[in-house]
């Protein structure tokens, strides 16, 4: 491959599975619990983080040599907050509907530990291109887990996917509901997100013994 070397590919692919930010590094759990009750919110959050982490990593990487190490965490916070606010304002002016959907996430993105974690662990020590790939990889890894969790919670909790009633109408008792199936209301509550993430971790570690810690 011309564009991406082996190492570059690893930067994108590793976080998707064996070095996943949520299931392996256990970062960004808070937002994974908060917003995965429906699939659409998970996807939107995934895209938002993709943008902020991709751009933020590049910015931090570009100024990494002039950041005073004493205040580097503050500098990182300022970069994230600025990016998020600018995006929010631009959306409000040109894509108002979308900005309303995103309103809840703005605060959650700023406090997402994955973003600070990647700035600190990667962007401060690597060039802009590598940092960009790392940002994309990690946010994709984050998004994949969010989407899996969101899929199961929305399907089992509300019987819908992206708002469409895929299992039939629970009130009119059509589809699966005609057979006596009931939505599991517990799935829409936050603790179930933790349990679903736990199951993903379990599956992942039992398939790859290297990931098991002693």
């Amino acid at each position: 491959m011309g564009l991406l070397t082996k190492k570059d590919q690893a930067l994108i692919l590793d976080p998707l599975a064996d070095n996943n930010p949520i299931t392996i590094q256990v970062l960004g759990i808070c937002s994974a619990l908060a917003i995965t009750a429906e699939l659409k919110a998970s996807i939107v959050m995934g895209i938002s983080v993709l943008f902020v982490l991709g751009v933020g990593n590049v910015v931090i990487s570009l100024i990494r040599n002039i950041i005073p190490s004493k205040i580097r965490i503050i500098v990182q916070l300022v970069v994230v907050a600025t990016l998020v606010i600018i995006v929010d304002q631009v959306l409000k002016a040109f894509a108002y509907e979308l900005s309303k959907t995103l309103a809840v996430f703005v605060g959650l993105i700023i406090t997402n530990c994955i973003i600070m974690g990647r700035f600190e662990a990667f962007a401060l020590g690597n060039g802009p291109w590598k940092s960009f790939l790392d940002g994309i990889g990690n946010s994709l890894g984050y998004a994949v887990i969010l989407i899996i969790v969101g899929f199961f919670r929305e399907l089992l909790g509300s019987g819908t996917l992206l708002g469409f009633q895929v299992l039939g109408d629970p009130v009119a008792k059509t589809g699966l509901y005609a057979l006596g199936y009931e939505n599991n209301g517990f799935m829409v509550l936050s603790p179930m997100a933790l349990i679903v993430v736990g199951i993903i971790i379990w599956v992942q570690r039992s398939r790859n013994k290297d990931l098991i810690e002693d």
Partner: peptide
């Protein structure tokens, strides 16, 4: 020397001015 106190203070001041005016500009333009 990025470890010096004076550098840290100047960096922080410049950063606040840059980010502040950027955000103010975006907010008033939109």
């Amino acid at each position: 020397n990025t470890e010096k106190n004076s550098y840290t203070v100047i960096f922080a001041a410049v950063m606040v001015i840059v980010v502040g005016s950027l955000l103010a500009f975006v907010a008033s333009a939109l």
